[in-house]
Amino acid sequence: MNVILILVAFSLIVALIGLGAFFWSVRSGQYDDPYGSSVRILFEDEKPRDAEESAPVQGNTENPSNQK
């Protein structure tokens, strides 16, 4: 019988981790702008291919993903 209780406790812990992840995603603003995020994911990743025209992309330029 103890086996079931251990399993239940374990499953609750896993579920709580999921809940924590959900809280984190809400807090970091992922639900604030659903349209923006849906579009942003389709953008091409930045490649340093523009060397011939303008100045090369700076090393410290932040990734354009939306994490605050």
Binding site: D32, D33, V39
Partner: peptide, 27 residues
């Protein structure tokens, strides 16, 4: 539109003084 988001978030291409930009589309 999505192009607006792209351009504004890539504004550092136009001026290197801009370090980072984020668009909140709904607002």
């Amino acid at each position: 539109c999505s192009s607006c988001i792209w351009l504004l978030e890539n504004l550092h291409r136009l001026n290197e003084g801009i370090m980072h930009s984020t668009v909140h589309f709904t607002k």
